[in-house]
C-alpha cells in the first residue's frame, strides 16, 4: 500500500527466543563508526514475493568483535531483551540506520522482524472525506445516467 511519509515507524522483534536481541536506530555516521571493522550485513533490498517478504544482504567483512550495543549513547531509540521487543521512532531529518544485534554483541543474529508505519494524523480524515465525496459523485453520476437512459 502506498503510504506518504508517516509520523512514526515501528520495528518489532517477534517470537519467543531465549536470546536477548537489540534493536536500535542511530545516525548513520555513528553506526558506521561503531561497526567499523566489525563483520555485519547490510540489507540492500526488500522484496515481496507471494506475500513473503524476502531480504537481500551485502556482507561487510570485519576482524574485530563488536562491543555490546546498549552501552553506547548515540542511539536515538533502542530496545533490548528476550521475547517480543518493539522499537518506535518518530521520524527525524537526516540519514539514519536501523540496527539488529545480539545484546552482547556476539556473532549470529537471528530474529523474526516486522516493520510498521504510523500514518500522519490527518490520514483517516483525508480518506473518509475522499470516501464521502466519492459516494456523492457516484450517486450524482448514477442519477444522471439513469435519467439519460430513461429518456431514450
Amino acid at each position: 500500500m502506498f503510504l506518504p511519509k508517516p509520523d512514526d515507524i515501528r520495528v518489532q522483534s517477534l517470537g519467543a527466543r531465549p536470546e536477548s536481541i537489540f534493536l536500535g536506530i542511530a545516525p548513520s555516521s555513528e553506526v558506521d563508526q561503531f561497526l567499523d571493522d566489525v563483520a555485519h550485513d547490510q540489507i540492500i533490498e526488500w522484496a515481496a514475493n507471494r506475500n513473503v517478504l524476502a531480504v537481500e544482504y551485502t556482507p561487510q567483512d570485519g576482524t574485530v568483535s563488536s562491543a555490546p550495543p546498549d552501552r553506547e549513547t548515540f542511539w536515538a531509540a533502542s530496545v533490548s531483551g528476550s521475547g517480543q521487543q518493539t522499537l518506535d521512532w518518530t521520524i527525524q531529518r537526516g540519514d539514519w540506520t536501523a540496527v539488529i544485534m545480539n545484546t552482547d554483541g556476539s556473532n549470529g543474529v537471528r530474529a523474526e522482524l516486522a516493520f510498521g508505519a504510523l500514518p500522519q494524523s490527518n490520514w483517516d480524515t483525508l480518506h473518509r472525506t475522499s470516501f464521502a465525496i466519492g459516494l456523492v459523485l457516484l450517486a450524482g453520476g448514477g442519477l444522471l445516467m439513469y435519467l439519460g437512459l430513461r429518456r431514450r
Binding site: M1, L3, K5, P6, D8, I9, R10, Q12, L14, I25, S28, V31, L35, V38, A39, H40, D41, Q42, I43, I44, E45, W46, A48, N51, V52, L53, A54, V55, Y57, P59, Q60, G62, S65, S66, P69, I91, D95, W96, T97, A98, V99, I100, M101, N102, G105, S106, N107, G108, V109, R110, A111, E112, L113, A114, F115, G116, A117, L118, P119
Partner: peptide, 24 residues
C-alpha cells in the same frame, strides 16, 4: 500502525543494518 508481514533475519555476522527503508 500498518505492519509488514514478518521476515526472518538469520545471519552469521554480529549485526544486520539497513538504511534502505525510505522512512529512515
Amino acid at each position: 500502525y500498518y505492519m509488514s508481514d514478518p521476515v526472518v533475519v538469520d545471519r552469521p555476522s554480529a549485526a544486520v543494518v539497513t538504511t534502505d527503508m525510505d522512512l529512515l
